[in-house]
Measured scan of single mutants.
Amino acid sequence: TRVETATETAWISLVTALHLVLGLNAVLGLLLLRWQFPAHYRRLRHALW
């Protein structure tokens, strides 16, 4: 059971790390998009709101 718990903890930390990386990538991607295409982003925002 100790090995199972260790594997579980490893999986949880792995999934958490993946989520963090994906979240960071999403934020960075959005920031890059805003920086690269400000006009396009503004138009998109007007369409959404």
Results as ranks from 00 to 15, higher is better:
28 L>I: 10
47 A>D: 06
4 E>V: 03
1 T>S: 10
21 V>W: 12
17 A>K: 08
39 A>T: 09
12 I>D: 11
8 E>P: 10
34 R>C: 14
27 V>T: 05
35 W>T: 06
33 L>V: 10
1 T>W: 05
43 R>A: 06
31 L>H: 02
39 A>G: 06
25 N>H: 07
41 Y>A: 08
17 A>Y: 10
5 T>P: 11
9 T>A: 10
40 H>D: 03
28 L>K: 00
12 I>R: 15
45 R>Q: 06
7 T>N: 08
48 L>F: 09
35 W>E: 04
44 L>V: 06
20 L>E: 00
7 T>W: 06
18 L>V: 14
32 L>E: 00
48 L>K: 01
1 T>K: 08
29 G>E: 02
23 G>A: 09
32 L>S: 00
9 T>Y: 15
37 F>S: 03
39 A>E: 14
22 L>K: 02
20 L>W: 13
28 L>Q: 01
20 L>R: 02
29 G>W: 13
32 L>G: 01
27 V>W: 05
33 L>H: 03
48 L>S: 02
12 I>V: 08
2 R>Q: 14
12 I>F: 08
44 L>C: 05
18 L>Y: 00
9 T>G: 09
45 R>E: 03
26 A>I: 05
27 V>Q: 01
23 G>W: 10
41 Y>S: 03
31 L>A: 12
42 R>Y: 08
30 L>F: 12
37 F>D: 01
48 L>G: 04
47 A>E: 04
10 A>C: 12
13 S>D: 04
4 E>C: 03
6 A>L: 09
24 L>G: 11
34 R>A: 12
49 W>L: 05
17 A>P: 09
19 H>K: 13
21 V>A: 02
40 H>K: 06
32 L>I: 13
39 A>W: 06
16 T>M: 14
15 V>Y: 04
4 E>N: 09
41 Y>D: 02
47 A>M: 03
14 L>D: 13
32 L>H: 12
40 H>A: 12
31 L>M: 04
20 L>S: 03
27 V>L: 11
26 A>H: 00
2 R>W: 10
5 T>L: 13
39 A>R: 06
1 T>F: 10
2 R>V: 11
11 W>T: 15
42 R>H: 11
9 T>W: 15
27 V>K: 01
38 P>H: 05
21 V>N: 00
40 H>F: 09
42 R>L: 09
49 W>V: 04
9 T>N: 14
34 R>D: 01
18 L>R: 01
23 G>P: 14
29 G>V: 10
23 G>V: 13
14 L>A: 14
11 W>Y: 09
32 L>K: 00
38 P>S: 06
5 T>G: 02
36 Q>E: 05
3 V>S: 02
12 I>P: 11
24 L>Q: 02
9 T>V: 11
34 R>K: 11
36 Q>T: 04
22 L>T: 00
33 L>R: 01
29 G>C: 07
25 N>G: 15
25 N>A: 15
33 L>C: 09
40 H>M: 11
44 L>Q: 00
16 T>G: 13
19 H>C: 15
33 L>S: 01
45 R>D: 02
9 T>S: 10
28 L>Y: 01
22 L>V: 04
18 L>C: 08
46 H>R: 07
49 W>N: 05
44 L>R: 01
46 H>V: 05
30 L>R: 01
5 T>D: 03
22 L>W: 06
3 V>R: 00
46 H>P: 01
42 R>I: 08
18 L>S: 07
2 R>M: 11
48 L>I: 10
27 V>H: 01
16 T>W: 14
42 R>V: 07
32 L>F: 10
8 E>D: 11
21 V>M: 02
5 T>R: 03
47 A>F: 09
23 G>N: 04
16 T>K: 10
44 L>T: 02
16 T>P: 15
16 T>Q: 13
7 T>E: 14
31 L>R: 01
48 L>H: 05
18 L>K: 00
14 L>Y: 14
26 A>D: 03
19 H>Y: 08
28 L>F: 13
9 T>I: 12
15 V>S: 13
28 L>H: 01
4 E>Y: 03
31 L>E: 02
34 R>G: 11
29 G>T: 04
46 H>C: 07
31 L>V: 10
8 E>S: 12
41 Y>P: 02
19 H>G: 15
6 A>C: 09
22 L>F: 14
2 R>D: 12
10 A>H: 13
41 Y>T: 04
43 R>W: 10
49 W>S: 06
17 A>W: 11
15 V>E: 06
35 W>L: 04
38 P>F: 05
37 F>T: 02
45 R>T: 10
37 F>V: 03
22 L>N: 02
44 L>H: 03
10 A>D: 15
29 G>I: 10
9 T>K: 11
5 T>W: 06
29 G>S: 05
33 L>N: 00
35 W>S: 08
35 W>C: 09
34 R>N: 03
19 H>E: 13
24 L>V: 07
47 A>K: 05
29 G>K: 01
47 A>V: 09
16 T>R: 03
27 V>Y: 07
1 T>G: 03
30 L>C: 07
6 A>S: 11
14 L>R: 12
27 V>F: 08
35 W>R: 09
30 L>P: 02
11 W>V: 13
8 E>I: 07
29 G>R: 02
25 N>L: 15
36 Q>N: 07
7 T>C: 04
